Amino acid sequence: MSTALLDLVLPPRCAGCDAPGALVCPRCAAELHGRPARRMPVPAPPGLPECWSATVYTSVVRRAIIAYKERGRTALAHPLAGALALTVAAATGDRPVTLVPVPSARPALRRRGHDPVSRLTELAAGYLRAAGWPTTVAKVLVQRRRVADQAGLSSLQRAENLALAFRVTAARNGSEPSLWGGAGPIVLVDDIVTTGATLAEAARALREAGVAVPLAATIAATRRKGESYDRYGG
Rank of each mutant, 00 (worst) to 15 (best):
P177Y: 06
G34Y: 13
G21Q: 08
R110C: 03
V56C: 11
G210P: 03
D191V: 07
G234V: 15
A151W: 08
A30M: 05
A165I: 05
T92E: 09
I219R: 10
V147S: 09
S175Y: 06
A203S: 14
V61M: 12
D149R: 09
L76I: 14
A170M: 00
A83I: 00
G126Y: 00
V193C: 01
A108Y: 02
D18N: 09
I66Q: 15
A203E: 01
G226Q: 15
T121Q: 11
A108G: 02
G210T: 01
E208F: 07
T92R: 12
R71L: 15
P116F: 08
L120S: 04
V61H: 13
Y229D: 12
R73S: 13
P116A: 09
P134G: 06
R62I: 01
D94L: 09
I65R: 11
L156A: 15
I219Y: 12
R145S: 00
L6V: 13
L164T: 08
S178T: 11
A85I: 06
C17Q: 11
P177M: 07
I65F: 13
L6C: 13
E160R: 12
V117P: 03
P11S: 13
L23W: 03
T169F: 05
G182L: 07
P107T: 07
D191K: 07
A19M: 06
G152E: 02
R106W: 07
A183V: 03
A4Q: 05
L206W: 13
Y57R: 10
A29M: 10
A81V: 00
G82C: 01
P45E: 00
